[in-house]
Design a protein around this nucleic acid. Sequence first.
DNA 1: ATGAAAGCGCTAACAA
DNA 2: TTGTTAGCGCTTTCAT
Lengths: 347, 347
Amino acid sequence: MTKASKPSQKDIAIAAGVSQATVSFVLTHRSVENGISHDTQRRVEEAAQRLGYSPNVAAQSLRGGRTGLIGVHTYERIFPASPDHYYHQFLIGLEEEASSLGLDLVLFTSAQRSTSSRSVFEGGHNRMRLADGAVILGARKNDDELQRLADEGFPIVSVGRPSRPNPRIASVRADYRSVLLTTVDQLAELGHRRILYTGHIERLPARTERFEGYLEGCDRRGIDAGAPAWTDPMSIRGQWVADVVRSGVTAIVAETTAHAHAIHTAALAAGVHTPADLSLVCLDVSSNPGDFVPWSHIVVPRYEMGRRALHLLHRLLDDPSVAGRVDSLACEPAHLSTLAAPSSAAA
Amino acid sequence: MTKASKPSQKDIAIAAGVSQATVSFVLTHRSVENGISHDTQRRVEEAAQRLGYSPNVAAQSLRGGRTGLIGVHTYERIFPASPDHYYHQFLIGLEEEASSLGLDLVLFTSAQRSTSSRSVFEGGHNRMRLADGAVILGARKNDDELQRLADEGFPIVSVGRPSRPNPRIASVRADYRSVLLTTVDQLAELGHRRILYTGHIERLPARTERFEGYLEGCDRRGIDAGAPAWTDPMSIRGQWVADVVRSGVTAIVAETTAHAHAIHTAALAAGVHTPADLSLVCLDVSSNPGDFVPWSHIVVPRYEMGRRALHLLHRLLDDPSVAGRVDSLACEPAHLSTLAAPSSAAA
DNA sequence: ATGAAAGCGCTAACAA
DNA sequence: TTGTTAGCGCTTTCAT
C-alpha cells in the first residue's frame, strides 16, 4: 500500500537528477550513440532499479506506430471442439514464430458473431486494423472486406491460396504441383501406366493446382491420365472399384480422405486387394496426425507454413514490396510403403 | 494506392465536420451522456465507416480507456504440441465467453523466455498493459509477478488457485474440498473403513485443499484416514500394494494420474484385484478426455471455468471491488462404477 | 449541443 | 555531454 502508480521515466529522471530524454536513452541501451556519461548512466540505472521501473508498452507503441500485435483470423473457431483440428499445426507454428519475433497474437473472436452489439465499423474486419497486420487461415477466404483491407495496404498474409487470386495478398502455400509431379513419378517408376484421379468437382477451383500437377506429371511420364472421376465419396461402392480395376486402372489418386477411405472400404468389399491390385494415394492430410491410414498420402508442412506465414508478415510490415509474395513450401509424399507395383493380373 | 495510413479520430472529425471529442464520444457509444445530436452521430458514424476507422489500442490504453482486448497468459505454450492439452478446454471456454462479450483475446506469447517457462515482465516489457485485463493459466504461477500486476491495479483473474494465497487476486477454482467430501462419503457408503491417501509431498502446498477435504471427509464419517503415503509413483511396486492391502486398507485416493496408474499396474502384478480388493480414486484429470481409465476420478469443469474466468474478469473491469473474489466451481466424481465395496477377505 | 485544450509515457529532433 | 520540446491518438474537463 505504498505507492500505487507505476514509476515513469519522468520519476526516474527526477530521482536521478537528469532529463527524461537521458533516461530514455539509457534504458533503451543507446547511451553510447547519444554520448551519455558512464556516471550518468549508472545513476539512471540505479534509480530505475530502485523504483522498479518497467516501460509502458502502450506509450512505446503509440510513439512507434506499432502495437506489436498480429491478428489471426479464421472463418471457424480458433479453439475448436475437436482438438485434432486442421488448423492446430498452423497455430503452433504461428505462436512459435510470434514468440521469437516478440509479437503477440490477437484472436479476433469478436468478429465471429456478426450480430454482436458493437457498431458496424467497430466490428467486422475493421477491428483487425488494431493489429499491425494479420494472418488469415481458412479455406473460404472469399471475403470482400479482406480484399479491401489488403487493397488499403493493410499487411495480410494468407495461409493457403486465397480462393480469388489476388496479386496483392501475400501467401504461404503448399507446393502441390511439385509433390504431384513426384507422386506420379513414383507411380510411374513402380510400373503404373493408367491412373485415375478422383475428387469433388465443385472444389476444383480451389484445388486446380493439384489436378494440374497431376496432369502435368502424367504427361511427362507418358501415363494415361484418363478422365477424372468427379464423384461423391458416398456413392463409391464395391462395384465402382471393381469396374475401375477392370478398366485397367492400377492406381488411384484421391483428393480427399473421404474419397480414399471410401475407395479403400469399397475395394475390400469387392475383393480388390490394395495395394496389390490397386495403389492408393490421398492428397489430403489425415486430420489426426497420429492416425495410421492404409494408403499413401501427402504431408503438408503445416507447422512450417505457420512459421513462414508469420515470418512473411513480419517482413511485410517493414517492406510493402513484399505484398504480392508467395512462399511455396514443399510437401512430402509419405507412407510410400503402401504403394505397390501393379499386379501381373493387370498386365 | 489510395490512402495508405490508418485514419484517426482527427481524420474523421474533419471528414464529418465536427470536433475530435465528438468523434470519441460517438465511437465509444457515449453520445447520450454527452448530448450528441442524432444527426451529428450519424454523420460521424458514416465517416468512420467510410474511412475504415479502427481505434488505436495503444493510444486508448495509454489514455486509460478500454481496448476491448483481454490478455491470456500461460506459463507454458498456448498451442501445445499435444492436442489433448490440459488447457484446451479452458481456452474453448475463454474464447466462447469472449466472443459473446464482444471481446478479443490476445495471446501473450512474446513473453516467452528462452527456456520453456514464461514471464510476464519479460525483458522489462510488460506487454499485457495493452489489454484491459488478463486471464492467467497454469499451475506454476510466478506469484511475484502476479502480485505486482495486481498491485499496479491491473485486472487479473487466475484460473486455479495462485500457489501463494493472495486476497487481492481474483480466481476461478475447482472446489476440491466438496468433491473430496463426496468422494469419501461414497467410499464410506460402500463400506470402506480404512483409506490411504497418496501423492507428492512437495506438491502439497498447491494441493492442500484436496488433502484437507479428504481429512475432513474421513473425520465426518469416522473413517481411518491413516497417514498419507507421500511417495514417488515410480517407486510403487507390487510389494507396496500388497503391503497396503494387508494392512487393512481397502481404498486408495491417488493425487495424480501417475500414482493411480502405478498403483493399478502394481496391483495387477501383485495379484491384488481392483476394485474387488482395492478401490481406486484419482484426483487428477486424465489428460485425454476420451481416455478410458480403470479407476474412479474427478472431473474438473474446465470449459465452465474458462467461461467463468472471463466473466469474472469482465466484471472486475468495471468494479474493482471484485478483486479478491473467488469463484469456486463444483467438480463431479466420475466413473463411479469402478468402485466396489471392500471384499469380505478384508473383514 | 459542440469545441478547445491538456496530458497519458515515450522517443527523437533539435538546442545548448 | 545533457536538456528542451513536440507530438504519437486518444479521453476528458472545461468553455462556449
